[in-house]
Design a protein around this nucleic acid. Sequence first.
RNA 1: GCCCGCCUGGCGGAAUGGUAGACGCAGCGGACUUAAAAUCCGCAGCCCGAUGGCGUGCCGGUUCGAGUCCGGCGGCGGGCACCA
Length: 891
Amino acid sequence: MNAPIPDARPASRSEADPHDAAAAGRYEFAAAEPRWQHRWAEADCFSVPDVPPADRPKYYVLEMFPYPSGQLHMGHVRNYTLGDVVARFKRARGFSVLHPMGWDAFGLPAENAARERGANPAEWTLRNIEIMRGTLQSLGLSLNWDREFATCLPDYYGHQQKLFLDFLRAGLVERREAFVNWDPVDHTVLANEQVVDGRGWRSGALIEKKRLSQWFLRITDFAPDLLDALDELPDWPERVRTMQAHWIGRSEGARVRFALDEPAPGGIGEVEVYTTRPDTLFGMSFLAIAPEHPLAAQVAATNPGAAGFVAECRRLGTSEATIEAAEKRGFDTGLRVRHPFIEGESFPVWIANFVLMEYGTGAIFGCPCGDQRDLDFARKYDLPVPVVVLPPGQDEASFTIGRTTHEGDGTLVRSGFLNGMSTAEGKRAAIRRLEEIGAGEGVTNWRLRDWGISRQRYWGCPIPVVHCASCGIVPVPAEQLPVVLPSDPDFSRPGNALDHHPTWKHTTCPACGGKAERETDTCDTFVDSSWYFARFTAPRAGTPTDRAAADGWLPVDQYIGGIEHAILHLLYARFFTRALHKTGHVGLSEPFKRLFTQGMVNHESFRDPADGSWLYPEEVERTATGATRRDNGAPVTVGRVEKMSKSKRNTVSPEAIIARFGADTARWFVLSDNPPERDMEWTEAGVSGAARFGQRLFRVVRAVAEGTVPAGAPGTAEGAVGELRRATHRTIAAVTEALEGFSFNVAVARLHELTSALADAEKAGAEKAEETPEWDAARREAALALCLLVSPMMPHLAEEMLAALEPDGAMAVQRSWPVADPALLAATRVTIAVQIMGKLRGTIEAEPDAEPAAVIAAAENEPNVARLLEGKRVVKRIHVPNRIVNLVVAG
RNA sequence: GCCCGCCUGGCGGAAUGGUAGACGCAGCGGACUUAAAAUCCGCAGCCCGAUGGCGUGCCGGUUCGAGUCCGGCGGCGGGCACCA
């Protein structure tokens, strides 16, 4: 989940604004924010029952729960503010809103802290949770805190073990071998991020791929459904659905068997490849197998050169990015295969580092004409490059291939019985022939692989099985759950602390009662986050889910989190929900109805040019031309704006910002800066601007509150009163629309406008002494609308203003969202742009929806337009009502 | 390497294919103040003498009209299965 920014820098001391005390009549956030948080808690405003009430529609808002790194960062502030605006908005719109919070509490950082500082992972994690809960609460989030849980406690992971057993029984779990990154010095399995330039991050040893028996969840069983159901998620970002579709990667192709000229050592007689381009079989140049392919192992057993190459490939580790970015290299095994279509010809068998064992059959036929990677490989090793696909418009006699190939469709040439066919025809014909001669068949292939969940680590959910010498693998009976982690792990030596524990793994076999050992692998933490949204609906239930609660609240109506989770977490959660459905734990398959992915929070970075060290923002003074060090005035290099991180020292602590400016200011700034799906830049100026607006809004509303009490409801729509009222109602409509559409920055802009309009009205009223009841009522209407419209974004300030405006009224959190009066939304005049040949030449004023003929006539009579039309003939008149007239002229 | 995005004034950004730059930040000018802070008012894309020209990363296309749609290129970012 939300990745920690592992920054241990202490929050800078709270800096109270020195002007606060001096200037009377300012909004005092430091007193107001805790007061309102207390009032909300007292009134229990954010609790909902496990089964949603029938009297109103339900709405489940969820933000991706945080990893408790110990410090909240600005990315969290942004994420949880976005969710809180939605939660408060929907509540005001009459929904029963479930908005829970918890902790994604298992993971590597706790083990790292244990190794580096001798911390106990559980104690370290629970302490971090205490700290982060406090910061979250100071943000004034409308969370149902009664539902809080941490995945690292048996209350949660015990139920997860039950799910594992149910999945096992349902055939959704299996055990098989897979590769891990192995540190041969520390004797430890490493995560990809712990492998730096092919070496273990602690030992510095060259890592190797190592084969281990591991647990897998059969996500591939659901591949077709996971792909097809993407079409039923219209409220997910298009790009996330596209990324998932590519990840699942359905492809139509063929399996082709190539017989070896003479049997290889070990008796292997043929190699099976998968290809999506059977049409290009006549363009074959070589056959390539993955370094982990069984045939490669056989060759390596007798061929030292092959063994060396395979060993080298092992050092690339398991990361696909590393493997694919590496220079393409190969080793010629000396073996040759016969071609199913070409009598008497044979092709060399290479071991190649870019062939992935996990995809297809772990072997390919190399066709440089149809695949750029194959071409690169052929050029490097001087292998033939037969041309068999002629791109459209090319001539067979003259067409040649240089450094880049045409991977698209074309006409097949030099391809025997496929000659003259299109790519699509050729694929069908080639597959038909392969099937006739028994050399292969058409197949559907998936890129998606089963989900390996085994982790050789202590700090995770224990996998509830026992290994018995006589009975084999035996599931722990449900009544013996939870299998609880020992509280006293020893991290003084590398490796899996759970496996090293002196007593924990020794147990008796549930089947035969003999001596047995517990499984010491724990679950991938993605498992924990794959069903937490369901657990939130009934967090204290004695079973993993409570069907009435889960079926009542799910799906999550709005899920919000970082784009970095677009594939893995979201796909695993979709799969897990299907598995929960199959095992009867929930009644649906798609967990998240609507998804929003937010951008990152960035900040400028500073370095000292003297020694290149990074500097914290507090150490730097901005000047007109650049920046200097606060302590000695030396110049500072202003670096790029980039993702906040400990190493760049460009983090900003939410605690410090909240202490200095208040939660509402922090919230307002992260909402107002830019559209939430984009990366934002945290700036001091932006924060102080947000703080200034809060004070201005408070002044403007308080001025209304201190005015005379209105005699009645605002009835007029005339004159200045009408203008203000139209501004109010247009703002209500615009802000409502903006919040529905996640355009929070636009909502902010509209609220700035209404605030200015009300401030102007105040001044105008004062100057003209226009204290009529209608005028006063219109101002109150605007002020009330401002209170309610800002309340999802600056909830504390909204309460404070509303209490001033209506001392005996209900709290903002208890009120309904304002509704715009349609009669006050219509414009009284419209400005219509007049273009000639698409270029703006003037504007005219008109009644809304005026007669087209009259509008066009007025447009042609506009002085500048008329001048430019002189001597020209208007041949076409385009009129877009209330917007534009475009005149097309001839001559 | 592969997949997916993003690119608009000094800056963040706004804009159902219909007046590009709303709103804010920074800036400049003014008011208030002994002064400062705070606050309030005003100016402001670029070029130009102009009622003109140019302008939404770059090149091309579709359209009466393109920031918006299509094709190509460049730069930046996310993901790549054991970071979360």
